[in-house]
Nucleic acid binder design. Sequence first.
RNA 1: GCGCCCCUAGCUCAACGGUAGAGCAGCAGAUUCUUAAUCUGCAGGUUCCUGGGUUCGAGUCCGGGGGGGCGCACCA
Length: 503
Amino acid sequence: MGESSDEGTDASVLESLSADRRNKRDALAREGIDPYPVRFDRTATAAELHRRHDGLDPDVRTGDQVRMAGRLTSIRGHGKLSFATLQDVTGSVQLLMQATTLTEQATAVLANLDLGDWVGAEGEAVTSRRGELSVDVTDLHLLSKALRPLPDKWHGLAATDTRYRQREIDLLANPESRRVFDIRFNTIASLRRQLVAEDFVEVDTPILQPQAGGALARPFLTHANALDIDLSLRIAPELYLKRLVVGGYERVFEIARNFRNEGVDTRHSPEFTALEAYRAFGDVHDGMDLTERLVIEAARSAAGRLTFTVGGRDVDLAGPWPRRPLLDWLEQVVGRRLHPSDPVEEVRAVCDAHGVGTLPEWGSGKLIFELYDTVLLPTVTDPVFVVGFPVEVSPLARHSKDDPMLADRFELAIDAKEFANGYSELNIPEEQQQRFVGQAEAVARGDLEAHPADLAFVRALEYGLPPTSGIGIGVDRLVMLIAEVEAIRDVILFPMMRPEASA
RNA sequence: GCGCCCCUAGCUCAACGGUAGAGCAGCAGAUUCUUAAUCUGCAGGUUCCUGGGUUCGAGUCCGGGGGGGCGCACCA
């Protein structure tokens, strides 16, 4: 927001609201009540209390003495009787506070309470006359003071930049935001659980790399002072993971934060999360099988269903998902069989006819890929595996046994977006070397996104990479689908933003 | 990068170019069954910043700057 806001110059209102809260805190301290106690022993969460006592008649005393802790989200003073809502990680429970039965300390704390304060409450589980499960509080502890007022309890927090910059209050004020991130973490937990169950080992590989490989993208650059060398932030963990397979880890995966120095929009974040998994002795078909299992089970586990609606479009994840050869599908749509071996001018003409923008240095394979990306992909809603991509745009994938210009590679398309990618890994060192040379020529032509030659990787292949199936899944996009949100920023806790105005 | 839109009280939002308002939150009071509690009263503002003008008058219209959103292009 405005910027003269540091230094306390804009001050007035917020300052006085905070001053009130500060004064209450200090008042308690003067009465000998520590406003920042070091610990509190909780004996029950809100969910546990509801589990134990839901369904009781009104005005019942259970005899169950509990100590609850959480944040105060609502206070309804009623003279000598007050109601409050205490919210913890599991849910919320009502506090019922009667002046006649509160301890002296509880009375003092209650008098100096504000919305947003962390409190610990001791008392008996009862139901109110209206039948709501409540804690009939006898003692009350301030656990930490909220010196700043929370957003509107009913309308929540709507200002988008505040939601992203101060995610903590977005989570506090907007249950919807909390729901989305619960789904995110459940999704990731499910992916991890499944892979571990299938004997994959979770590993971690370098984020700072001498050269960023494993994908085609512009990297972020940085510098290591100790070695006086330039480094890139990784754009994909692929090459290191395959080196681990060379080293004998037959099944590995990494849930990797990747960094790409490219556009920021609803579907792209410079910092995003990918799952990559490699499995020795498998091929591209095993990769598709694994991808389908992982995605379906993640959706079931995190959302409890397989149908989702995003932006008015219905997506059904129920399998098995169709597998469509790219060239067949393209033929149906453009009315002509294309192949990477076709003369560039002819493929380019098809691109022109379908309004696909091209660059002069692109070969037939790249042009075919662009046709897929801009003509075919946007028509997808339910999941489809597209198989058989030009080798020209797949520098790390094995060529197909019966067509050396096509790679044994799939992309998983859902809702007009690429969700996953995978292939039979190229494990022939000389061919990998040759592919890198081809990419180097692209660099020479000015292509900023060609794959750099990685000699350490080729050397690793020379020690022998077994036949290997590899997959990569875009975790953020998967979460967007399962949580039914349209902006990638809504599934990333702290998305990249310009810094707030400096003091 | 280009185009369109937005920025008003702590929060959510009003104000044909005409004295900046409401709800919630806050403060004071009433209230032992509320749960968006209710009732009475009070207070709360450099309208993101900055400069100029149609002019008597700018939150509103124009220029510059800042932040954000959406769309297009590149990308996953």
